[in-house]
Simulated scan of single mutants.
Amino acid sequence: MQRFWIWLLASSVMVLTGCATLFPDTDHPAGAPPEAKRLSFTMIARNYRCEPSVIAIDREGRSALVKVTIRSEGARHVFSIPDLEIRRYLDPDQEATVEFLAERSGVFEFGCTRFPWISPLDHKGKLAIR
């Protein structure tokens, strides 16, 4: 019975304040070194998908300051790159910019979802950093 009341309270808080209270935006300020490569991308969040769904970054062996400008069309989206601890809420027809410092290589999943996490059912994009 106690679990029910905890669940009810948590659900009420999320409904009244929105998921952003429990899962705030996370965007790390990028203190990029002067020699860092600068890269910019534009993305559209539409129908809970990110377009383009594949982004490739060549760091050329150094750090890269990556700036992604995302526009949400028609609905509220949550842009996230979980492995880089990035999350940004986008209201309908809003544009936001996310900056991060790419210092390691790898392939990272990202998503433009309706929830603050990427579920197995969501369409995922790939960010390849070399």
Rank of each mutant, 00 (worst) to 15 (best):
Asn47Trp: 08
Asp25Arg: 13
Glu85Arg: 03
Pro52Tyr: 12
Val98Pro: 05
Thr21Asp: 12
Asp91Phe: 10
Val68Glu: 02
Arg87Leu: 12
Ile70Asp: 06
Ala30Thr: 07
Arg114Gln: 11
Glu85Tyr: 05
Glu103Met: 04
Ser105Asn: 01
Gly18Lys: 12
Asp91Met: 15
Phe110Pro: 04
Ala56Glu: 13
Ser63Thr: 02
Leu90Met: 13
Ile55Glu: 06
Met43Lys: 08
Arg114Lys: 11
Arg104Pro: 05
Arg59Leu: 05
Gly111Gln: 09
Ala102Tyr: 03
Lys67Tyr: 04
Glu103Asn: 06
Val78Asp: 00
Asp58Arg: 03
Gly111Ile: 09
Ile57Arg: 06
Thr21Leu: 15
Val98Met: 14
Thr113Met: 10
His28Gly: 08
Leu39Trp: 06
Pro29Leu: 12
Thr69Arg: 08
Arg49Leu: 09
Tyr89Gly: 14
Met14Arg: 11
His28Ile: 04
Ser63Ala: 03
Phe100Met: 09
Ala36Thr: 04
His77Pro: 06
Pro29Lys: 13
Val66Ser: 00
Pro33Thr: 09
Cys50Pro: 00
Tyr89Cys: 13
Leu22Cys: 01
Gly111Cys: 11
Pro29Val: 13
Gly106Phe: 02
Ile57Tyr: 00
Thr113Gln: 08
Pro33Gly: 10
Glu35Tyr: 08
Asp83Gln: 08
Ser40Met: 12
Phe41Ala: 04
Gly106Tyr: 05
Asp91His: 14
Ala30Cys: 04
Gly61Glu: 00
Phe79Glu: 03
Pro24Gly: 15
Val78Gly: 04
Met43Gln: 11
His28Lys: 09
Arg49Met: 10
Val15Thr: 14
Gln94Cys: 10
Ile70Tyr: 03
Ser63Asn: 01
Leu84Trp: 06
Ile57Gly: 06
Leu101Met: 06
Arg38Tyr: 01
Pro92Tyr: 09
Gly18Ser: 09
Cys19Ile: 14
Thr26Arg: 09
Arg104Asn: 04
Thr97Arg: 10
Asp91Leu: 15
Val66Met: 03
Thr69Lys: 01
Thr17Trp: 14
Ile86Lys: 10
Leu16Pro: 05
Ile44Cys: 06
Val98Leu: 13
Met43Tyr: 05
Arg88Ser: 09
Gly74Ile: 05
Ile55Asp: 04
Leu65Tyr: 01
Pro33Phe: 10
Asp91Tyr: 12
Arg76Ser: 11
Glu51Phe: 11
Glu99Leu: 09
Gly106Asp: 02
Tyr89Ile: 12
Val78Leu: 09
Cys50Glu: 05
Thr113Asn: 07
Pro33Cys: 11
Glu99Val: 10
Ile86Glu: 13
Asp27Arg: 12
Ala96Ile: 14
Glu95Ser: 15
Asp83Ser: 04
